[in-house]
Nucleic acid binder design. Structure first.
Lengths: 114, 114
DNA sequence: CAGAATCCCGTCTGATACTG
DNA sequence: CAGTATCAGACGGGATTCTG
């Protein structure tokens, strides 16, 4: 089978900002700067792009309240919530194994790894 | 909590070539060009880089047989196999939902999409 | 066969400044 | 507040050539 479309898709949803954004939206709708704050380390531009891409793919919905100052709320669609499951598992794996990976990484500068 | 190290790690293992490589190694050890062929669309350099990174992180082990012509075999370590689980779930999600995502994407073709 | 080295381009990403 | 516009550096990733 041809893996190109799949790997392209993986490259898109596997993107770290996408994963973080979806994960953060799991416990409810969030506003732009709120998201930016809790994700941490993401630039305003990257958050905008990530949200646009997610919205375009139908994973996140964007709701604008025509108030002053403007208020925009982002939330997961049903499809987005279904993606959150496997992404959460991936995050769990990272949390459980990041220490060992980093140990391996520093070891590899001294001797060849098994 | 600080999400930076986590998102960095996610960006590394979420990389499409990494996901494809680990997935392909799931059903047994593979040689370099064999991997390259079944992954499809990956350049020699990217496969080399991906395998080096995986080896360095202790997710893949590299075994060299000093024959002529040289033969190198890559296989998953225990840690690598544990990562394969969540990655497989992600791949399954892609397979199940790629059609809907692409439908959403074309529907939203209001302005420049990639 | 399994790479290493090199060149090169497009994309990602952050920083900064500006707007409705 | 929630963006858009622009610049610039880092990085991803392909193509090609060369070696043990």
């Amino acid at each position: 089978m041809d893996c190109r479309p799949i790997s392209q898709m993986l490259g898109r949803i596997g993107d770290k900002w996408t994963i973080m954004t979806i994960t953060m939206l799991l416990d409810g709708p969030k506003r732009f700067n709120e998201l930016r704050r809790i994700i941490g380390g993401i630039s305003q531009q990257m958050l905008t792009r990530t949200l646009r891409a997610l919205e375009n793919d139908g994973l996140v919905s964007r709701k604008v309240y025509p108030t002053i100052p403007p208020q925009v709320e982002y939330s997961l669609t049903t499809l987005g919530r279904s993606l959150a499951e496997p992404l959460t598992q991936l995050t769990v794996w990272v949390l459980e194994n990041i220490a060992e990976v980093e140990r391996n990484r520093s070891k590899a500068s001294n001797r060849s790894v098994d």
